[in-house]
Amino acid sequence: MKIKICGLRRACDIEYVNELLPDYIGFIFAEKSRRYVPPAEAAKLKEQLDPRIKAVGVFVDAPMDKIVTVVEQRIIDAVQLHGSEDDGYIRKLQGRTDCPILKAFIVRGVGDVRAAEQSPADYVLLDGGEGSGRPFDWSQIKNITRPYFLAGGLNLDNLQEAIQELGPYAVDVSSGVETGGWKDYAKIKRFMEICSEQQGRRGKQ
């Protein structure tokens, strides 16, 4: 199971993940987000990032040229689309870059799960809302037929249950490893420990 720590924006955040080594980190390029980081600043952070960690750029209904520019500048290793981007947009973007594309789906019902299953994106992410910090009804996704990133309200209190119930391809966390709106080293460390513990238990089953 992969781990993504999203919403990094400080040099100390990079220090935290370089020590703990999640599989992915996320830079938020949506200006309305309180975790927004300008591409120029993200480029500096990426230079400090351990190369074993993949940087994902999170965009919300962004002009395609903007995404392509950030990719070409090697600021990110993967693109996450978190807006209303449709299949046509995804296919066009795939034609302009070989960067893996992760499409986020807000799960409100069965239709959203079906859309995720049929998406041409390289990966899909299932979320409860745009940074709401609350989990959605996980029972809606128990029968999904493709691997997915699980996001939306994951934290130290519900992570174990999420892994045991769903066994996602990856877990994605942001506010769940923060204190006062900023990334908390101890919480990230514990989050990753829980993931490791649960993977060990699943491997023995």
Score class of each variant (00 low, 15 high):
residue 85 E to I: 01
residue 31 E to S: 14
residue 200 G to S: 11
residue 52 R to N: 06
residue 159 L to S: 01
residue 104 A to R: 02
residue 7 G to N: 05
residue 120 P to D: 12
residue 200 G to H: 11
residue 69 T to W: 05
residue 160 Q to M: 06
residue 179 T to R: 06
residue 51 P to F: 02
residue 93 L to T: 06
residue 164 Q to D: 12
residue 77 D to Q: 05
residue 160 Q to R: 15
residue 35 R to D: 12
residue 122 D to E: 02
residue 178 E to H: 05
residue 69 T to S: 12
residue 109 G to Q: 01
residue 90 I to N: 12
residue 141 I to V: 13
residue 78 A to Y: 01
residue 58 V to D: 03
residue 195 C to A: 15
residue 33 S to I: 07
residue 66 K to R: 10
residue 98 D to N: 10
residue 102 L to T: 00
residue 56 V to Y: 07
residue 14 I to T: 02
residue 120 P to W: 13
residue 141 I to R: 01
residue 153 G to K: 00
residue 186 A to G: 03
residue 205 Q to D: 13
residue 187 K to T: 04
residue 199 Q to H: 10
residue 72 E to P: 00
residue 135 P to T: 12
residue 164 Q to A: 15
residue 127 D to P: 02
residue 88 G to R: 11
residue 74 R to A: 03
residue 110 V to H: 08
residue 144 I to M: 15
residue 104 A to G: 05
residue 60 V to K: 09
residue 55 A to G: 07
residue 54 K to P: 00
residue 168 P to D: 15
residue 143 N to G: 01
residue 88 G to L: 09
residue 52 R to T: 09
residue 195 C to T: 09
residue 7 G to V: 02
residue 21 L to H: 14
residue 62 A to I: 12
residue 202 R to Y: 08
residue 62 A to L: 11
residue 112 D to N: 05
residue 165 E to H: 11
residue 193 E to M: 13
residue 2 K to Q: 14
residue 4 K to D: 04
residue 37 V to G: 07
residue 201 R to D: 12
residue 126 L to G: 05
residue 174 S to M: 06
residue 133 G to I: 01
residue 123 Y to C: 09
residue 175 S to Q: 10
residue 17 V to H: 03
residue 61 D to L: 07
residue 178 E to K: 03
residue 87 D to W: 15
residue 150 L to C: 12
residue 176 G to Y: 05
residue 62 A to H: 14
residue 112 D to H: 04
residue 106 I to V: 08
residue 168 P to N: 13
residue 136 F to V: 00
residue 158 N to G: 00
residue 6 C to F: 03
residue 196 S to G: 11
residue 107 V to K: 04
residue 76 I to A: 04
residue 195 C to S: 13
residue 61 D to G: 03
residue 102 L to H: 00
residue 128 G to F: 00
residue 158 N to Y: 03
residue 96 R to K: 14
residue 183 K to Y: 05
residue 165 E to Y: 08
residue 130 E to L: 06
residue 133 G to D: 07
residue 49 L to D: 09
residue 125 L to V: 08
residue 155 N to Q: 04
residue 195 C to W: 07
residue 129 G to H: 03
residue 6 C to H: 03
residue 178 E to W: 07
residue 22 P to G: 06
residue 33 S to M: 09
residue 157 D to M: 04
residue 28 I to V: 14
residue 88 G to N: 14
residue 188 I to F: 00
residue 50 D to S: 14
residue 88 G to S: 13
residue 204 K to I: 09
residue 1 M to T: 13
